[in-house]
Design a protein around this nucleic acid. Structure first.
Length: 268
DNA sequence: AGTTCCCTGAGG
DNA sequence: CCTCAGGGAACT
C-alpha cells in the first residue's frame, strides 16, 4: 500500500494540477529520500507528463529529465499552499508559483530518483516491472502464467510477473476468483485463470473509481480519503463472516505478509 | 522459498 | 515493554 489504484489516484491528481507548471525551488529535508541525482537540476523546468507503471510514478520534465517516484508503504504526495506549515515527516518540498508539492513519508521507505529520460527505463526499478496490471491483455496474462511453478499469491505480488498488485488487491482478487492463496499456479484450471484475470481487472478498476483504499493514511494529493476499504471482503477482515458464505475469514502469514481468505470459498 | 532489513506509530 | 503493518531488495 499504496498499490496500483492508489498510485494512479495520485497520478491523476498531479495531472490535473501541476502539468505545465515551472519549478521555482526545491528543499530536501531528508537527504536519503533522494536516491539518485540532484533535485536542484529540476529548478526552472516544467512538468510535461505524469506516467505510472505498476506502483512506480514517473514525472517527465522539460529538458528530458525523469523523476522516478516510489511511495512504498506510507509515502504521500500532497499539494499545499506555500504558507501552510510543514507536517511531521515532510521530506521533500517542490515549490511552484503559489503551490507546493510535498512528499510526506512516515516510515521513510519511499524515495525519488532523478535521471535523464533516456536512462529511465534502464533503472533497476523500471527494468524489473512486468506489464501493468490495469488494462492487461487476457492472452498475455495466460501466457505469463503458463509454466509458473510457485504459489499464486506470491506470484501476484511479484512485480516482474505483473506490475501494480500489492497485498490488499492480491487477497481481494483471489477471494473474488475463489482461489486459495497457496494454490500452485500450475494447478489452476483454465476456468480459474480466466476468473482470476477478471477478478484482478474488476478489483483494480473498482478501487480506482473509489479513489483507492485508505489504509495506513492513504489519501490523494488534496488529502482526500479513498473509499475502497469499505468494499474489502477479506483483507483485514479475519474472524469476521465471509460476505459470500458466512464462514469465518482466516488469516495466516505468507512470505512475511498477512494473508486473508475464506476457507469455504477458497479451497486449495 | 523463506527471512531480514529498512522505519514509525498504533495497539496490546 | 512487545508485536504488527508491508514494498521490495538482499540475503540465506
Amino acid at each position: 500500500m499504496p498499490e496500483l489504484p492508489e498510485v494512479e489516484t495520485v497520478a491523476q491528481g498531479l495531472r490535473r494540477t501541476i502539468l505545465r507548471k515551472k519549478l521555482k525551488g526545491v528543499e530536501v529535508f531528508l537527504p536519503k529520500t533522494v536516491r539518485h541525482g540532484d533535485l536542484r537540476d529540476l529548478v526552472g523546468r516544467t512538468v510535461r507528463r505524469v506516467d505510472r507503471v505498476g506502483k512506480l510514478m514517473l514525472l517527465r520534465w522539460s529538458g528530458e529529465m525523469t523523476l522516478l517516484w516510489h511511495l512504498k508503504m506510507t509515502g504521500q504526495i500532497l499539494l499545499a499552499r506555500p504558507a501552510e506549515t510543514l507536517v511531521k515527516h515532510t521530506h521533500l518540498r517542490f515549490s511552484f508559483n503559489g503551490l507546493d508539492l510535498r512528499f510526506v513519508d512516515l516510515r521513510q521507505f519511499g524515495y525519488v530518483k532523478l535521471v535523464p529520460t533516456a536512462e529511465a527505463e534502464a533503472q533497476a526499478e523500471f527494468r524489473a516491472l512486468g506489464p501493468d496490471a490495469l488494462g492487461l491483455d487476457h492472452s498475455e496474462f495466460l501466457e505469463r502464467i503458463r509454466g509458473r511453478r510457485g504459489r499464486i499469491k506470491p506470484l501476484l505480488l511479484n512485480q516482474s510477473f505483473i506490475a501494480g498488485i500489492g497485498n490488499i488487491y492480491a487477497d481481494e482478487s483471489l477471494f473474488r476468483a475463489g482461489i486459495h492463496p497457496l494454490t500452485p499456479a500450475s494447478d489452476l484450471s483454465h476456468d480459474q485463470r480466466r476468473r482470476l484475470f477478471g477478478a484482478i481487472n474488476d478489483v483494480l478498476t473498482e478501487a480506482l473509481s473509489l479513489g483507492g483504499s485508505s489504509i495506513s493514511r492513504f489519501c490523494d494529493v488534496h488529502g482526500k480519503l479513498g473509499y475502497f476499504q469499505t468494499r474489502h471482503q477479506v483483507y483485514r477482515r479475519h474472524q469476521e463472516a465471509c460476505p459470500a458464505c458466512g464462514s469465518v475469514i482466516e488469516r495466516f502469514r505468507l512470505g512475511g505478509r498477512g494473508t486473508h481468505f475464506c476457507p469455504q470459498c477458497q479451497k486449495v
